[in-house]
Amino acid sequence: MNKKYQLHVAKVKPVWLRFLILVIIGLPPITGWPLTLFATAKDPLHNLFMWLSYGCFIWLFILLNTGFKKLLSYLSFAFLLALITCLVGAGIRNLIGFIQGASRQDMTLVSIRMLSLFICMVSVIPYSLFFINCFSVSSFISRLDFSTVKNHRTKIHLALALRVFQHVGDVTISLLDVWREENPKMISPRFSDELWESRLSPLAWLNWMRNSAVTWCLAMIMHTFEAIPYLTEEMKNIINFRENR
């Protein structure tokens, strides 16, 4: 990306100004304002268009700050979550509507509602990830003043908690690539010729979904916990270094 157009919100100082800028940009998903001023109850498509515009703005904002690669990793995670939520949600709502004999108009409203939720999620999740990554835990730790005895322990524990929390976020985003590499037969079309025939039954699809979810969850737990001894040791070393200096 042309560096001429690059933004550097993550480098804005002081930190409270950076926080303020990010909060102002995130106001619509957090409070609904100012999009609710233009929302109309009669025209759900109009509201949908407003959220879509906001989503495009957020993506552009993240793109200008982080570049394509980071934006794509945020988006892959956001789309995964949003697709699961909205497809299952739409399925359940339509099933209930079908059983209750809902009108075609009601069904359309359900679809629009799910679409709104989808757009909201694919806007808010990349924004949340970007927000977290705008604050470097490493630099926070390096700036901590351990010289005073007061609140010494609390500061150390808080810094470590933030470090681990950010690590969980990093693991989850990168896990999508790891999972795809390790399970090519489960998702990649070039491996799936012989599998597609056996997947015609709905039970086979359910089994595939269950296996995918279990593999993903286990990998997430293992990758999260395996780094804990290193992160704890790293923090101990920082403390020792500061105290002996």
């Binding site: 699961i84 939520t85 359940i92 681990v164 929390f165 690590h167 969980v168 976020g169 999260t224």
Partner: peptide
């Protein structure tokens, strides 16, 4: 502290990843 933070993160992700909206 590290384990509590990891479980907190996993709990947030577990809540986000498999979401089934209820009408």
């Amino acid at each position: 502290t590290a384990v509590v933070a990891a479980l907190t993160g996993l709990s947030a992700l577990g809540t986000m990843i498999i979401r089934v909206p209820i009408p």
